[in-house]
């Protein structure tokens, strides 16, 4: 249903003019709305007999010229976020690989407990896991954040890879076995590399989620971008800069996440062309939806051919 043109007749000159007029009117309304928000925020306010300057007043924004602040934000905040995200991503992928192999093991004693563990971690809020590790394992904030992110995303990546393994054509395994490979060799040398490449878009999209989730570290007190800007700099410069600092954090997060999202999208397009030239492929931007489809496909295949 990508071509909505099917639904109605091609618009004639009148309809096209009407839609162009609507377009311009909406644009004006949107711009006016944004202007109103800006003006409202910028208006000085009375509070307890004191007149506060507007939100875009230069006195609220003079800190942006302070190179020391930027240095602090980047060396402590951005670096703290990236440091946690990178280590967690590596661990999550490693854990996902292990879990997917255990989950698709032919031995029920390994397969079923792994499935239960994966379901358990998928259903929990990451924040709760962070708090749990912080309080129970006493690892310190950094490792609490990293290991919670690694476990949660590792479970999801493991499930994705498992679905990828199941979805492979049967002939791959049969060919490998008939060449004299052991089952494990076939899995590691033939099946797994293909499953990994097919699932790479989901994995990278999941890493975008991981990067976003590092901001939860704010709540358990690990100094990442959000905590550094809002708490540390907020109390250093004073509360009147909070809005400014929030805007800075917002823009920095947006820049980081958009870069990674675009990379994920590009990768998905590239993988799609190579591996599913015919099918449209699942929307890669929301890995949980793509994972849902992959999971259902795997379940359908398993129903058809019991192991």
């Amino acid at each position: 249903m990508s071509g909505a043109v099917v639904l109605f007749d091609a618009p004639g000159p009148k309809a096209r003019r009407l839609s162009r007029i609507f377009s311009v009117v909406t644009a004006i309304v949107v711009v006016a709305g944004l202007g109103w928000v800006f003006a409202t925020l910028n208006a000085p306010r009375e509070s307890g007999g004191v007149t506060l300057p507007g939100m875009f007043d230069p006195t609220r924004w003079d800190i942006v010229t302070d190179p020391e602040m930027w240095g602090f934000i980047f060396t402590v905040g951005v670096w703290g976020t990236l440091r946690a995200a990178i280590v967690a991503a590596v661990l999550a992928i490693a854990l996902g690989v292990v879990l997917s192999l255990l989950r698709s093991s032919p031995i029920a004693w390994i397969r079923i407990p792994t499935a239960v563990v994966i379901e358990f971690f998928r259903g929990m809020p990451v924040l709760l896991m962070m708090l749990f590790i912080l309080l129970v394992a006493g690892t310190g904030q950094y490792w609490a954040v990293v290991s919670a992110l690694a476990v949660y995303n590792g479970a999801l990546i493991g499930e994705a890879l498992r679905a990828g393994l199941v979805a492979l054509p049967r002939g791959q395994r049969e060919a490998a076995l008939s060449l004299g490979m052991r089952p494990l060799q076939s899995k590691m040398l033939v099946e797994f590399p293909q499953a990994f490449r097919q699932m790479l878009p989901i994995i990278v999209a999941q890493l975008v989620v991981l990067l976003k989730d590092t901001s939860l570290a704010y709540i358990v007190g690990y100094p990442e971008l959000l905590r550094v800007t809002l708490n540390n700099l907020g109390s250093y410069y004073g509360n009147r800069y909070l809005f400014t600092l929030w805007c800075i954090a917002f823009v920095l997060y947006l820049a980081m996440n958009l870069t990674l999202s675009w990379f994920a999208r590009w990768l998905a397009k590239r993988t799609d062309r190579r591996y599913h030239p015919a099918k449209g492929g699942p929307a890669p931007e929301d890995p949980s939806q793509a994972l849902l489809v992959a999971d259902a496909n795997a379940a359908a295949i398993e129903d058809r051919s019991p192991r």
């Binding site: 909406t26 989730d213 901001s215 704010y218 809002l230 909070l242 997060y253």
Partner: peptide, 30 residues
Amino acid sequence: IATLRVVATVYTEIIRNTPLTLVVIFCAII
């Protein structure tokens, strides 16, 4: 209507790439 499409796309892109913590902090503190 093209403008509506653009507005919706921009909104989706921005919100999707903003961490939830940031949104909650905006509503609760800012």
